[in-house]
Design a protein around this nucleic acid. Structure first.
Lengths: 195, 195, 195, 195
DNA sequence: TATGAATGAGCCTTCATTCAT
DNA sequence: GATGAATGAAGGCTCATTCAT
């Protein structure tokens, strides 16, 4: 009977290993050792080394977006939702540092990711942000002529850069402390005039 | 006598090759072929493949930041400088697509870059933005309590994400068209209340 | 208690698999799947993959030679026996194409076969032919100074080559149609002068 | 400058290694060691391990057939040509034992050879034999209704089997000693009645 | 300085075999 | 006996780097 936990264990091990040495500098056998299994075992669950990375990213991104979506649903309006979303974005990264490392730094390799298999998962995040912005426009909280796509990418990029700097700065401070400021600046930037 | 042009030719060739296949999937011999020289010749000018990438990034970042600094110096105030900076950031990427490809997508590999040899060059860009923000605060155009570091990263991240999306979207539209909107949203976000 | 049919089922499955992909390109798990059992089960009946092949060859060769011996026994003289033997040789191959594939093409790998474990079974075939030739010499049908060993190998080689060509030609014609001609040419070649 | 001898050296080394351990049991690094070069060097001249084997076979077969064709051309008639051909066939194998080993035993693996890339080279040999038989028929030395294709395969198979037995018997006798007997039996078998 | 053939360490992947269930 | 998940040794191939010319 195939162990239903193995793939997950391998993915978690891969996150730790990739976070430590980077995808291209990690050997499959490193992942195996980290997972406490034999190298060959990995191939019972993943066809290639690449597939581990793609699966890892898709799964984590999907979980993440799903989690964010559920959490912000309870907020009363678009402004509160954006504030919550930024706070959660940072909180997740702070809670799962290895994951943050992989997502922020390692996954930025052309071809394989945003451009490839995982484009869909990233779009889901964009769509989540976009829908909140649209809600805010409809509610008159944001500029009625706000270019949603641009604003979406700006917010994502802003959060992403804060996170990247934090990761590269070896997490020497609390990322969450920046959340409110980031939200404030962004919200002011997209606010309806006179509000 | 060392040919003073060779290293530059190699770097330009490397940009094209990395843009096409990515750093890890590019062979030194590919760069050599692209540069019209023999593989061994590269080692007369660079100690390792890594060094090509680091040199490339440092040089281009330094040029870029120098160029931006010079260009925005002529602008009358911080607001105009930010607008100009965003426009130029996008214009450069649009003008040198291979460079954009490398900088936006390929260079996001941990260890080797932001975290390592090139941290300094990225900081220079951050400092440029930061100084403009400080100027704006001093001039009363931006919030007097603006957290400069956070705002700096937000602007950089926003531009970066717009650029990345554009590169990954195979440049199917004019990146420059977004410049003014990006600047507008950001400027509004950091503006002094009541201005 | 060991299932007495299992080894045979494995052998029959192996014949089909080897015929399809060749010995070295067949996996033990392929044989298992073909036999409808688990891979591990094979090791209850065979010590190694090699052993399957050796057992297969020995068994089939022994059966084959036994069958031929019995069949030709009823023929009145050496000439009729040779004719019958050639016809049967071809008929068997035509009837069991997978077996033909394995014997003709796959088993020709040095070390493991003629030279090794199966030498005996092949010799048995040679001895059968040799004994018919001797009978023919004694009966004055074949040259009294016929070099029996050479003639034996010639007949075997001739049949073998016809069969191999037929297998490699994807059996696009009736092999049995050549039987009489082969027998005729051979018999004329070894006949006593003036007969 | 690519060494024009390297591929040939590799082929000759491969013949010795394959003769010793068989194709599937030989490692590329074994061939390299035998050739006195590094393993990687082989890949400068051959794309895959398979390609070595195919190239080897094609080249040697072509040389062999070319040599036989040239040599028998000087013989006065078809009968003399067949005698010469058999003698030479055996002589070549006796002179190049490693080649004999590879050709006789190792190359008999389905898929890859007779059936694949080398079919053409084997056919060339068949055609050579066939043309001599046709010549003999035209000259009235062989049966006018001789089935040339069958007879061709018979002669090839006969020679081949003699050679195989000799190789497998570790060459404990002189193969050439059988040449005349083989030729005699075959020639008698195909001779025109009453000649 | 320039070349590019040669090197050989390194790694992904396969698969025969084992063994706990 | 039967299973099939797990093992881990093995090997083909790549490619950064070297060095004789």
């Amino acid at each position: 009977m195939p162990d239903p936990d193995k793939p997950q264990q391998i993915i978690e091990a891969a996150i730790r290993v990739f976070a430590r040495t980077g995808y291209y500098n990690s050997r499959v056998s490193d992942i195996a050792r980290e997972a406490g299994i034999a190298a060959g075992t990995i191939y019972l669950y993943f066809k290639t080394k690449d597939e581990i990375l793609v699966t890892l990213f898709r799964q984590k991104m999907a979980q993440w977006v799903g989690y964010l979506r559920a959490e912000i649903a309870g907020e009363p309006d678009a402004v509160a939702k954006i504030r919550r979303l930024v706070r959660l974005h940072f909180a997740v990264l702070e809670r799962y540092p290895d994951l943050a490392e992989v997502v922020q730094v390692e996954l930025r390799q052309g071809q394989k990711f945003f451009r490839g298999a995982s484009a869909q998962e990233v779009s889901a995040y964009f769509e989540l942000i976009g829908s909140v912005l649209a809600e805010g426009i409809a509610a008159g909280r944001f500029r009625h002529d706000l270019p949603v796509k641009i604003a979406t990418k700006m917010l994502f990029g802003a959060m992403d850069q804060l996170a990247t700097s934090w990761v590269l700065g070896k997490r020497g401070y609390r990322l969450a402390d920046s959340a409110d400021e980031v939200a404030t600046i962004f919200l002011k930037g997209v606010a309806r005039d006179g509000v």
